[in-house]
Amino acid sequence: MNKKILKITTTAIFIIIFVVFYKALQDTNVYTPKKKSNNEIPLFSANLFYSNKQTDSSELFKLDKFYLLNIWSSWCVPCRSEHSLLMDLSKNEKIEIIGLNYKDKKRNAENFLNELGDPYQEIIFDKEGINAIEWGAFGVPESFLINDGIVIKKYIGPLNKELVKEIQLLIK
């Protein structure tokens, strides 16, 4: 009797393990943090790109408007491709685009903006990449749609036409 229970449980355990492994095969193993929305924007002090002044994050997003925080860098190739979309979006009056220049050289960043245009209302100069971490980002480019001090939506990777349309809809 005892042996029978042993047999059944052992077999059952292995079947469970099989099912779990089988299911795990279907998933990707690369981890991306969950896109938590409706989070308050993080509090931090930042260096401004042009004026070189210290400012507070609450200061930057204080208006009752939509904001798009865009993390970019001159050395990042996908940033180049999404830049024209940002230029278009910056024409929309309802939204202000704030740049976060990630681990860049100031001169390179200026050249980049001179060449492709400057859609940003204000740019945070994040030389060491610390501010990006405060936002919970881990690469470039990433974008955050913000309203009333709250992150509504988070985009990992470059924006494309569909996503920009989505943003246009959201801010209407």
Binding site: F14, F21, Y22, A24, L25, N29, V30, Y31
Partner: peptide, 27 residues
């Protein structure tokens, strides 16, 4: 299934084969 520093090309189809084979051996 697991990610690791050691790079291996991986392919779920192969994974399935080994899994079935492994459990047949266990059974």
């Amino acid at each position: 299934i697991l990610n690791s520093v050691h790079t291996f090309a991986n392919d779920p189809g192969r994974g399935l084969f080994i899994l079935v084979f492994l459990f047949s051996l266990i059974l």
